[in-house]
Amino acid sequence: MVKVYGLVVLYKGVTSATILKAAYDLQSFSFFQRSSVQEFMTFVSKTIVERTHQASRQSVKEGEYMVQVYVRADNLAGVLISDHEYPNRVAHTLITKLLDDFSAKVPVAIWQTGDETTIDFPVLPQYLAKYQNPKEADALTKIQNDLDETKIILHDTIKAVLERGEKLDDLVEKSNSLSMHSKAFYKTARKTNSCCNF
Protein backbone atom coordinates (compact mmCIF):
# COMPACT_ATOMS: atom_id res chain seq x y z
CA MET A 1 0.00 0.00 0.00
CA VAL A 2 1.20 3.48 -0.76
CA LYS A 3 -0.49 5.73 1.71
CA VAL A 4 0.03 8.89 3.73
CA TYR A 5 -1.69 8.83 7.11
CA GLY A 6 -0.74 12.21 8.44
CA LEU A 7 0.99 15.49 7.78
CA VAL A 8 2.07 17.64 10.71
CA VAL A 9 3.78 21.01 10.85
CA LEU A 10 5.51 21.74 14.15
CA TYR A 11 7.69 24.32 15.79
CA LYS A 12 10.66 22.96 17.70
CA GLY A 13 10.99 25.10 20.82
CA VAL A 14 13.79 24.98 23.32
CA THR A 15 12.32 22.24 25.48
CA SER A 16 9.38 20.91 23.56
CA ALA A 17 7.75 20.97 20.16
CA THR A 18 4.35 22.49 19.49
CA ILE A 19 1.95 21.53 16.76
CA LEU A 20 1.21 24.36 14.36
CA LYS A 21 -1.05 22.51 11.97
CA ALA A 22 -1.97 18.89 11.32
CA ALA A 23 -4.04 16.85 8.90
CA TYR A 24 -4.84 13.15 9.09
CA ASP A 25 -6.33 10.48 6.89
CA LEU A 26 -7.82 7.88 9.22
CA GLN A 27 -10.25 6.19 6.85
CA SER A 28 -8.40 2.91 6.87
CA PHE A 29 -8.59 2.53 10.65
CA SER A 30 -11.56 1.08 12.41
CA PHE A 31 -13.98 3.67 13.71
CA PHE A 32 -13.25 3.16 17.38
CA GLN A 33 -9.50 3.37 16.91
CA ARG A 34 -9.44 6.60 14.96
CA SER A 35 -9.24 9.04 17.84
CA SER A 36 -6.49 7.02 19.51
CA VAL A 37 -4.55 6.67 16.29
CA GLN A 38 -4.72 10.40 15.77
CA GLU A 39 -3.51 11.09 19.31
CA PHE A 40 -0.64 8.74 18.73
CA MET A 41 0.38 10.33 15.49
CA THR A 42 0.49 13.70 17.23
CA PHE A 43 2.40 12.21 20.14
CA VAL A 44 4.96 10.46 17.95
CA SER A 45 5.44 13.54 15.75
CA LYS A 46 6.18 15.68 18.78
CA THR A 47 8.47 13.09 20.34
CA ILE A 48 10.50 12.64 17.19
CA VAL A 49 10.79 16.33 16.36
CA GLU A 50 12.05 16.99 19.87
CA ARG A 51 14.77 14.44 19.25
CA THR A 52 15.82 15.58 15.82
CA HIS A 53 18.58 18.14 15.44
CA GLN A 54 18.16 21.34 13.52
CA ALA A 55 18.73 21.14 9.78
CA SER A 56 18.49 17.39 9.59
CA ARG A 57 16.23 14.74 8.14
CA GLN A 58 15.25 11.40 9.56
CA SER A 59 13.18 8.44 8.41
CA VAL A 60 12.05 6.22 11.23
CA LYS A 61 10.49 2.85 10.73
CA GLU A 62 8.07 1.73 13.40
CA GLY A 63 6.02 -1.42 12.90
CA GLU A 64 4.22 -1.06 9.61
CA TYR A 65 4.60 2.71 9.55
CA MET A 66 7.27 5.10 8.47
CA VAL A 67 7.74 8.51 10.05
CA GLN A 68 9.60 11.02 7.92
CA VAL A 69 10.77 14.13 9.68
CA TYR A 70 12.62 17.27 8.63
CA VAL A 71 13.60 20.04 11.03
CA ARG A 72 14.78 23.20 9.32
CA ALA A 73 17.52 25.46 10.62
CA ASP A 74 14.88 27.98 11.69
CA ASN A 75 13.19 25.35 13.90
CA LEU A 76 10.20 24.81 11.65
CA ALA A 77 9.57 21.07 11.35
CA GLY A 78 7.48 18.86 9.12
CA VAL A 79 6.42 15.27 9.72
CA LEU A 80 4.91 12.89 7.18
CA ILE A 81 3.53 9.59 8.43
CA SER A 82 3.20 6.95 5.75
CA ASP A 83 3.65 3.24 5.21
CA HIS A 84 6.83 1.50 4.04
CA GLU A 85 6.09 1.64 0.37
CA TYR A 86 5.98 5.38 0.17
CA PRO A 87 9.31 6.38 -1.41
CA ASN A 88 11.50 8.17 1.15
CA ARG A 89 12.99 10.60 -1.29
CA VAL A 90 9.60 11.74 -2.51
CA ALA A 91 8.35 12.10 1.06
CA HIS A 92 11.23 14.38 1.98
CA THR A 93 10.85 16.47 -1.14
CA LEU A 94 7.21 16.93 -0.27
CA ILE A 95 7.96 17.98 3.31
CA THR A 96 10.44 20.55 2.03
CA LYS A 97 7.87 21.95 -0.33
CA LEU A 98 5.20 21.99 2.36
CA LEU A 99 7.43 23.87 4.80
CA ASP A 100 8.39 26.40 2.12
CA ASP A 101 4.73 27.07 1.42
CA PHE A 102 3.95 27.26 5.10
CA SER A 103 6.66 29.81 5.83
CA ALA A 104 5.53 31.86 2.85
CA LYS A 105 1.97 32.06 4.18
CA VAL A 106 2.41 32.17 7.94
CA PRO A 107 4.64 34.94 9.37
CA VAL A 108 7.64 33.82 11.40
CA ALA A 109 6.57 35.94 14.36
CA ILE A 110 3.66 33.70 15.32
CA TRP A 111 5.42 30.34 14.98
CA GLN A 112 6.62 30.40 18.52
CA THR A 113 3.31 31.26 20.13
CA GLY A 114 0.79 29.90 17.68
CA ASP A 115 -1.18 26.69 17.93
CA GLU A 116 -3.59 24.75 15.75
CA THR A 117 -6.50 27.10 16.29
CA THR A 118 -4.71 30.39 15.76
CA ILE A 119 -2.72 29.53 12.68
CA ASP A 120 -4.40 30.01 9.37
CA PHE A 121 -3.15 27.45 6.90
CA PRO A 122 -6.25 25.69 5.59
CA VAL A 123 -4.62 23.97 2.61
CA LEU A 124 -2.99 21.16 4.60
CA PRO A 125 -5.78 18.60 3.99
CA GLN A 126 -5.48 19.31 0.27
CA TYR A 127 -1.78 18.55 0.43
CA LEU A 128 -2.58 15.32 2.21
CA ALA A 129 -5.00 14.28 -0.52
CA LYS A 130 -2.58 15.24 -3.26
CA TYR A 131 0.33 13.39 -1.70
CA GLN A 132 -1.61 10.11 -1.66
CA ASN A 133 -0.32 9.52 -5.15
CA PRO A 134 3.44 10.00 -4.86
CA LYS A 135 3.88 9.71 -8.61
CA GLU A 136 1.69 12.69 -9.32
CA ALA A 137 3.08 14.62 -6.41
CA ASP A 138 6.58 13.90 -7.58
CA ALA A 139 5.82 15.22 -11.03
CA LEU A 140 4.66 18.49 -9.49
CA THR A 141 7.92 18.96 -7.67
CA LYS A 142 10.20 17.69 -10.42
CA ILE A 143 12.37 20.80 -10.15
CA GLN A 144 13.62 19.74 -6.76
CA ASN A 145 14.60 16.41 -8.10
CA ASP A 146 17.82 16.22 -6.18
CA LEU A 147 17.14 16.90 -2.58
CA ASP A 148 19.34 19.45 -0.89
CA GLU A 149 22.60 18.16 0.47
CA THR A 150 21.11 17.22 3.87
CA LYS A 151 21.41 13.50 4.24
CA ILE A 152 18.44 11.42 5.33
CA ILE A 153 19.25 9.40 8.42
CA LEU A 154 17.43 6.07 8.44
CA HIS A 155 16.37 4.34 11.62
CA ASP A 156 14.90 0.88 11.83
CA THR A 157 12.91 1.52 14.95
CA ILE A 158 11.78 4.40 17.06
CA LYS A 159 14.02 3.15 19.87
CA ALA A 160 17.03 4.37 17.91
CA VAL A 161 15.71 7.92 18.02
CA LEU A 162 15.04 8.05 21.73
CA GLU A 163 17.75 9.31 24.01
CA ARG A 164 19.69 6.95 26.19
CA GLY A 165 17.64 5.54 29.03
CA GLU A 166 14.34 6.55 27.48
CA LYS A 167 11.69 4.02 26.75
CA LEU A 168 8.65 4.48 24.57
CA ASP A 169 6.44 2.71 27.11
CA ASP A 170 7.47 5.18 29.82
CA LEU A 171 6.95 8.15 27.54
CA VAL A 172 3.47 6.95 26.71
CA GLU A 173 2.71 6.36 30.37
CA LYS A 174 3.92 9.83 31.37
CA SER A 175 2.34 11.73 28.53
CA ASN A 176 -0.48 14.14 29.35
CA SER A 177 -1.64 14.48 25.79
CA LEU A 178 -2.81 10.89 25.51
CA SER A 179 -6.19 9.92 26.89
CA MET A 180 -6.83 6.90 29.12
CA HIS A 181 -8.48 5.30 26.16
CA SER A 182 -5.43 5.70 23.95
CA LYS A 183 -3.12 4.35 26.60
CA ALA A 184 -5.26 1.23 26.91
CA PHE A 185 -5.21 1.00 23.14
CA TYR A 186 -1.41 1.25 23.11
CA LYS A 187 -1.06 -1.50 25.69
CA THR A 188 -3.35 -3.88 23.81
CA ALA A 189 -1.55 -3.19 20.58
CA ARG A 190 1.78 -3.91 22.27
CA LYS A 191 0.47 -7.14 23.71
CA THR A 192 -1.07 -8.52 20.56
CA ASN A 193 1.62 -7.14 18.26
CA SER A 194 -0.97 -5.53 16.09
CA CYS A 195 0.97 -5.78 12.84
CA CYS A 196 0.07 -9.43 12.40
CA ASN A 197 -3.60 -9.73 13.11
CA PHE A 198 -4.32 -12.83 11.10
Binding site: S30, F31, F32, Q33, H181, A184, K187
Partner: peptide, 29 residues
Protein backbone atom coordinates in the same frame (compact mmCIF):
# COMPACT_ATOMS: atom_id res chain seq x y z
CA UNK B 1 -20.91 -1.44 8.64
CA UNK B 2 -18.20 -2.07 11.18
CA UNK B 3 -17.58 -4.01 14.36
CA UNK B 4 -14.63 -3.71 16.67
CA UNK B 5 -13.48 -4.51 20.17
CA UNK B 6 -12.55 -1.33 22.00
CA UNK B 7 -9.71 -1.64 24.47
CA UNK B 8 -11.04 -0.58 27.88
CA UNK B 9 -9.32 -2.26 30.76
CA UNK B 10 -11.86 -2.11 33.53
CA UNK B 11 -15.51 -1.45 33.80
CA UNK B 12 -15.13 1.82 35.65
CA UNK B 13 -18.21 3.52 34.34
CA UNK B 14 -20.79 0.93 35.26
CA UNK B 15 -22.32 1.26 31.84
CA UNK B 16 -23.22 -1.22 29.16
CA UNK B 17 -20.11 -2.16 27.20
CA UNK B 18 -22.07 -2.25 23.96
CA UNK B 19 -21.63 0.88 21.91
CA UNK B 20 -23.24 1.92 18.70
CA UNK B 21 -21.90 5.11 17.19
CA UNK B 22 -22.45 6.19 13.59
CA UNK B 23 -23.44 2.70 12.46
CA UNK B 24 -20.41 1.11 14.07
CA UNK B 25 -20.82 -1.52 16.74
CA UNK B 26 -18.25 -1.62 19.49
CA UNK B 27 -17.71 -3.93 22.42
CA UNK B 28 -15.50 -2.92 25.32
CA UNK B 29 -12.66 -5.32 25.83
Amino acid sequence: YAFDIVPVETNFRNKSPVMCIENCLGLES
